[in-house]
Design a protein around this nucleic acid. Structure first.
Length: 478
RNA sequence: GGCGCCGUACCCAAGUGGUAAGGGAGAGGUCUGCAAAACCUUUAUGCAUCGGUUCAAUUCCGAUCGGCGCCUCCA
């Protein structure tokens, strides 16, 4: 197992990764708020987390991956037009907020599944853990970190000296209210609500009884409560998008450590944004794209995954139709190359790792080393290309190693097929008959007829390739 | 106002104090009746600009220009 290093947002430096319990990793990844479809920017982060989990497992670590589903707290407050439409149509169908949440949760996992993202070991819904949150809030309250105002229970950041450490925040320099009105109940602008009994939204749909009155939990508390429930009061890795650093994760740390008095998370990993021409993808700017949009545009889900692998997780990645098409072309070429090698490998026995050709093994080792260096996935991908393109390596060994690498990358080598859709035997024999007729015409040097038959097949969606071993046909990509 | 990131060929994108990965696209070639595929070759004396440090900078420092993110729910 190589030495694993990660760039820890807490401290902003590369650190060797050493799990709290040797051989085991507790990992919490911030999940979706399920009131709308995930867009491809969101999904980039989940691809990153998937690569993280798969890499750790590759290195022999026993990972427990926990992900929350935020299905409370933000369902009635956002007035994005697209969402309103969804809510309205849901209302027309007589559905509850929970049904909406359920719908988008299913949609989310349908997307991640198509992207080959492994399902977390624990998926926990906020609405099913309100009692855990209440218990956690009571501990925070017992420590004297809270105050009540205007019907809400607030966390008092002035009681937590290390507040803002993760984000390098210095409270006195923040310009509170620069972009949003300050809640007049707060002693400090950074204070945040642990429990609402007075919603700023009219129609909060879900409410619970609590020691502070009937209401609902603040957003940040769910991650603290659920992560501790499943991973313990201290655990190894917490990941999410960079946007969470200054507020969400900062607040999570404050309340978690206020409750337990212990260090909470040891390594913080944050994924940068996918950006479009005009900046990040966001609903309010009306420039967000879903995975389904890409599928409708003729891309495969794994083309998008491949696209994500082209950039390092800590760098912004520029999305465009052109860049996406490039990723598709690149992945297609890679699958073709792989299929060629698999054909050449024929029935040769696939060697296990210990018996691989030295040159292949060397590449595999470099691949592992790159992953271990803060997930240098773009370079790991280049290593896979180098492996596939090196003519000096035995095909069977290359195929074995490529499949091995793909257990982390997830580009879909194992499932690669030449044919796009299944054809009936009847269709096959028809095509073969035409191909045979053309072969006869070619033998007779009757080029006109041969070309006519080529065109006829092309109209059927079949392209021909004359090679040294005769003519092979393929389906034209739809 | 504060915090932070980025600017690498036509495009996406790695990377390092010692002379620019990979992919896409383009060009030329081999092969081919045609075509495709494949393969080979090729495309930044250059890494926004200007200074500085250094034997040596794309890589460190400073300034400038440009772009982006966060400080509000947001991956």
């Amino acid at each position: 197992m190589p030495v694993i290093t990660f760039f820890n947002t807490l401290g902003r430096s590369m650190e060797e990764f050493k799990p709290l319990v040797p051989g085991k990793v507790g990992f919490y990844g911030c999940g979706p708020t399920v009131y709308n479809y995930a867009h491809i920017g969101n999904l980039r982060t989940y691809v990153f987390e998937d690569i993280l989990v798969r890499s750790l497992r590759r290195f022999g670590l026993d990972v427990t991956h926990v992900m929350n589903i935020t299905d409370v707290g933000h369902l009635s407050g956002d007035d994005d037009s697209g969402e309103d439409k969804m809510l309205r149509s849901a209302k027309e169908r007589g559905q509850s907020v929970l049904q909406i949440a359920s719908y988008y949760t299913d949609a989310f996992f349908a997307d991640t599944e198509r992207l080959g993202i492994a399902r977390p070991d624990v998926v926990c819904k906020a609405t099913e853990h309100v009692q855990d949150m209440i218990r956690l809030i009571r501990r925070i309250e017992a420590g004297g970190y809270t105050y009540s105002a205007g019907g809400n229970l607030y966390f008092d950041v002035s009681k937590f000296p290390r507040y803002g450490e993760l984000a390098n925040l210095r409270l006195e320099e923040l310009k509170a209210g620069a972009r949003i009105e300050v809640d007049e109940n707060k002693k400090n602008p950074q204070d945040f609500v642990l429990w609402f009994t007075k919603s700023k939204f009219e129609n909060q749909a879900l409410i619970w009884d609590s020691p502070w009155g009937r209401g609902y939990p603040g957003w940040h508390v769910e991650c603290s409560a659920m992560s501790m429930k499943y991973l313990g009061e201290s655990f190894d890795i917490h990941a999410g998008g960079v946007d969470h650093i200054p507020v969400h994760h900062t607040n999570e740390i404050a309340q978690s450590e206020a409750a337990t008095g212990k260090p909470w998370v040891r390594y913080w990993l944050h994924a940068e944004f996918l950006v479009m021409d005009k900046g990040k993808m966001s609903k309010s700017k009306g420039n967000f794209i879903t995975l389904q949009n890409l599928l409708d545009g003729g891309f495969e889900a794994l083309d998008y995954r491949y696209f994500c692998l082209g950039g390092h997780y800590r760098s912004q990645l520029s999305f465009s139709d052109d860049a996406m098409a490039q990723a598709r072309a690149s992945r297609k070429a890679m699958l073709e190359k792989f299929l060629d090698l698999r054909t050449h490998a024929g029935t040769a026995e696939v060697p296990n790792r210990s018996r691989l050709h030295a040159g292949v093994l060397a590449r595999l080792e470099r691949f592992d080393k790159l992953l271990a260096e803060d997930l240098a996935v773009p370079r790991a991908l280049a290593e896979l290309w180098g492996l596939l393109k090196d003519p000096s390596l035995p095909p069977a060994d290359v195929v074995a190693a490529a499949l091995d690498m793909d257990t982390v990358l997830g580009i879909g080598l194992a499932g690669a097929r030449r044919e796009e859709k299944s054809l009936s035997d009847e269709e096959r024999s028809k095509i073969q008959a035409l191909v045979d007729r053309r072969t006869e015409a070619k033998k007779a040097k009757n080029w006109a007829e041969a070309d006519a038959l080529r065109q006829e097949l092309k109209d059927l969606g079949i392209v021909l390739e004359d090679g040294p071993r005769g003519t092979v046909w393929k389906q034209l990509k739809a």
